[in-house]
Nucleic acid binder design. Structure first.
Length: 301
DNA sequence: CGGATTTGACCTGCGC
DNA sequence: GCGCAGGTCAAATCCG
């Protein structure tokens, strides 16, 4: 199992940007390796802009919400070219501007309802008095934590990312046969949440949305990482349907946190899979997929 | 037995 | 104001 924690140098991910797609979709990134393909949707207004796009189009600081995109019925779809349907779904979602500094400022205890999960337990159940804990919500709009979403071809909904999550809810999604699952980081001090849903357009695609920032390191990959095995299977069926939208204008430095080299697995003996070490010097991969995706500035320590 | 998951109820925001 | 849908809570249940 430990071997799974390592990275296969042969499966280095390349990240390519898709600036300007559809006019509004300037925050979509795609990265893919030999056995996995995912689409990263930057929601933070990180400094991911290219010189070409920075400063243009309202600065390009936007937040993307794949869920809302579905709700919106892809109304934003207009000038998008033909493409993978799932990719298009995400691409054309409502893109919100991250106008609130609080969204990109981790120090702001924004989401009053989410920063302190303990509070609710302390106050008890859902009786009216309990709502007192949510009173502070009143008068101030709920401010969402920074979020980003990415799509992954996988048969397994809950992708291993190096953190431990506890499921706290599941909801049926309108216009989708697949439910959406809600997870919270098991670290009591960590308020990070994530939603996992399967694309109704492309059932092979899992949309994972992270919200918030981890205030701790990952726990590694304690579990078997079976999803990777599934992923490998799926990835082998991938077709570069969206490749025409990948513009190689941006190549993030491999050594950066945006190097996008999530742990990978390669077929091993006895039909199992294992990971091989990444040859590039880097910190021990204790941050998982998320760690590879989220820039250091987005993480608390 | 403790932690994780399930699931129905409740709360909130938003559009009409 | 109302209804809908997303999001969250927490008791019940499951599982190792």
């Amino acid at each position: 199992m430990d071997e799974k924690d390592k990275v296969n140098p042969a499966n280095e991910f390349s990240i390519q940007s898709s600036w300007g797609l559809g006019g509004d979709s300037d925050s979509v990134y795609s990265f893919f390796g030999n056995d996995r393909e995912s689409t990263i949707l930057n929601e933070f207004g990180w400094n991911l802009q290219t010189p070409d796009t920075a400063g243009s189009e309202a600065g390009g600081i936007r937040e993307f919400d794949p869920i809302e995109s579905e709700l919106a019925g892809n109304s934003a779809v207009q000038s998008l070219p033909e493409r993978d349907s799932a990719f298009q779904e995400v691409q054309t979602g409502i893109i919100e501007k991250v106008g609130d500094a609080s969204i990109s400022n981790p120090s702001v205890s924004s989401s009053s309802s989410e920063d302190h999960p303990e509070k609710s337990t302390a106050s008890g159940g859902k009786q009216p008095s309990e709502t007192a804990s949510k009173v502070k919500k009143k008068g101030q709009k709920r401010i969402r934590q920074p979020r980003f979403a990415f799509m992954t071809k996988s048969e397994v909904d809950h992708l291993e990312d190096g953190y431990r999550w506890r499921k706290y809810g599941q909801k049926a999604v309108k216009n989708s046969p697949y439910p959406r699952s809600y997870y919270r980081c098991t670290n009591s001090k960590c308020t990070v949440k994530k939603r996992v849903e399967r694309s109704s357009e492309d059932p092979t695609t899992v949309i994972t949305t992270y919200e918030g920032q981890h205030c701790h390191h990952t726990v590694g990959f304690p579990r078997g990482g079976g999803f990777i095995s599934h992923e490998t299977t799926i990835a082998s069926q991938l077709t570069p349907s969206g490749s025409q939208f990948y513009y190689p204008s941006i190549q993030f430095p491999q050594q950066s946190s945006l190097g996008f080299r999530p742990t990978q697995e390669v077929p091993g003996e006895s039909g199992q899979t294992h990971r091989v070490p990444d040859s590039t010097p880097r910190l021990p991969t204790d941050e998982g997929l998320l760690g590879d995706i989220v820039p250091p500035g987005m993480r608390n320590r």
